[in-house]
């Protein structure tokens, strides 16, 4: 098994606010991330696909194809967007790294038909990230 990883970067704004909680609770739980007009990050996304290299092409999957999937599914949806307001898949969810990684997984998994999506790692900044795996296929699978 070979694990292939491609990285992309996108920039987006978001705000953490749960309308079912009081303004005070929102402030206490989310701190600065609750500022009403939102704020932004440069996100880094690493997508890892696992598979056996094709005997003819030597590829797990064609990187051009992966690049197109990422452009279509992620960049066009999220780059230079407001995640709360412009990404319907995140509607009703707090756009934390964990939730965005899960949404990204669900967008990419059905599109990757050569090899298998192994890991989605989304960095909000260099010190904070979320990893998403298929259950039972953890970091050391």
């Amino acid at each position: 098994m070979v694990y292939l990883t491609r990285k992309i970067e996108f920039s987006a704004s978001h705000v953490y606010h749960n309308p079912t909680l009081s303004p005070r609770e929102n402030k206490r739980i989310f701190g600065k991330c609750n500022n009403p007009h939102g704020h932004g990050h440069n996100y880094t996304l690493e997508v890892t696909v696992a598979g056996e290299p094709d005997p003819v092409t030597g590829m797990v999957l064609d990187l051009k194809e992966l690049k197109e999937i990422l452009e279509h599914e992620i960049m066009q949806r999220m780059d230079h967007r407001h995640l709360n307001k412009e990404v319907p898949e995140l509607k009703g969810q707090i756009p934390t790294c964990e939730n965005i990684a899960r949404v990204i997984w669900n967008l990419l998994d059905p599109k990757i038909t050569q090899g298998k999506l192994h890991r989605v790692r989304l960095y909000e900044n260099s010190d904070l990230f979320a990893d998403c795996y298929r259950n039972g296929a953890g970091a050391r699978a």
Partner: peptide, 15 residues
Amino acid sequence: MKNETLHIELGRRYR
């Protein structure tokens, strides 16, 4: 439903 099949980890770095 579908997400029950996912395993999510939070990563944090300190120095």
